[in-house]
Computed example of a mutant assay.
Amino acid sequence: STCDDIGSHVPLKFKQKIWEGGFIDLSVLLKSATELEQFESHGDLQLVNGKLCVVKRQLNSFLTIEKWTSAFMIYMSIVLQHSQTAQEMLKYMRNIRLAANRSPNWHKYDEQFRLRKASNPAMSWGEIHSEFWLMYINQSNVTTQQSAQAKFKPQASTNSFNTTSVGHASQNQIKFCNSYNSGKSCNFFPRCRYSHSCSQCRGKHPRVNCRN
């Protein structure tokens, strides 16, 4: 019904656990009402040590940021039935979306935060946990940047410039563009800070074409 809240399909036993501050895997909330009713009462038949046993189903708890947002909205809808923490939880959702833009480990931050929240109900949803943020978001962002810098670090052999001096006065040393003098196009021209002239005779031609 259009009048029902978005968490209306969740059975009371799951809602009770959420209201009591317990930890719940958010992926559970994306299941249908029928699947949720059968979730804890049924399992998979598996052969364990020669015996046929009912093993509780394992969840694939990793969610994309889009699915996480959908699940957390359901979770928030249930919490807000008996709570005044709407603004805190909206801020928490914003924090997670921000984390997802900065690090692939955002889901680890979310899981650890909610586990800590379950053990410490007084903790605010609206405050970023600085230790977890540093471990899973900032640290990952720094590592990614360092890897990118190492990957695209210019090599001296391909980006070096000729510093051949003209004449015998070192104070008049001119730096010439290697790309230009080797007959290649310069990616920085016309704003190249190195001289686009012959490193042999200062002529208006590259060194590969010099006749002196």
Score class of each variant (00 low, 15 high):
residue 101 N to H: 10
residue 115 L to A: 07
residue 58 Q to H: 12
residue 168 H to P: 00
residue 59 L to N: 12
residue 202 R to F: 03
residue 70 S to G: 07
residue 115 L to S: 07
residue 71 A to E: 05
residue 132 F to A: 08
residue 15 K to R: 14
residue 111 E to M: 06
residue 15 K to V: 07
residue 144 T to W: 09
residue 9 H to V: 08
residue 66 E to K: 09
residue 17 K to Y: 07
residue 138 N to S: 10
residue 50 G to N: 11
residue 118 A to D: 15
residue 67 K to V: 13
residue 76 M to R: 13
residue 137 I to G: 01
residue 151 K to W: 02
residue 180 Y to K: 03
residue 134 L to T: 13
residue 56 K to W: 04
residue 141 N to M: 01
residue 148 A to K: 14
residue 59 L to F: 12
residue 192 C to T: 03
residue 182 S to I: 14
residue 161 F to Y: 04
residue 142 V to D: 05
residue 178 N to T: 12
residue 140 S to T: 15
residue 148 A to S: 12
residue 20 E to L: 08
residue 196 H to Q: 01
residue 116 R to N: 12
residue 208 V to W: 08
residue 36 L to I: 15
residue 186 C to M: 02
residue 52 L to I: 11
residue 37 E to L: 03
residue 161 F to I: 06
residue 207 R to K: 05
residue 179 S to P: 06
residue 99 A to E: 00
residue 194 Y to C: 01
residue 43 G to C: 06
residue 152 F to S: 05
residue 191 R to I: 11
residue 167 G to S: 01
residue 115 L to Y: 14
residue 198 C to T: 02
residue 16 Q to V: 12
residue 174 I to S: 03
residue 109 Y to L: 04
residue 62 F to E: 09
residue 168 H to I: 14
residue 36 L to S: 08
residue 211 R to Y: 00
residue 57 R to V: 12
residue 136 Y to E: 02
residue 90 L to A: 05
residue 181 N to E: 00
residue 68 W to M: 04
residue 150 A to L: 13
residue 159 N to L: 03
residue 39 F to R: 13
residue 86 A to Y: 13
residue 114 R to E: 15
residue 22 G to N: 15
residue 106 W to P: 07
residue 121 P to M: 09
residue 176 F to C: 03
residue 49 N to A: 14
residue 54 V to H: 09
residue 67 K to I: 10
residue 73 M to H: 12
residue 64 T to W: 01
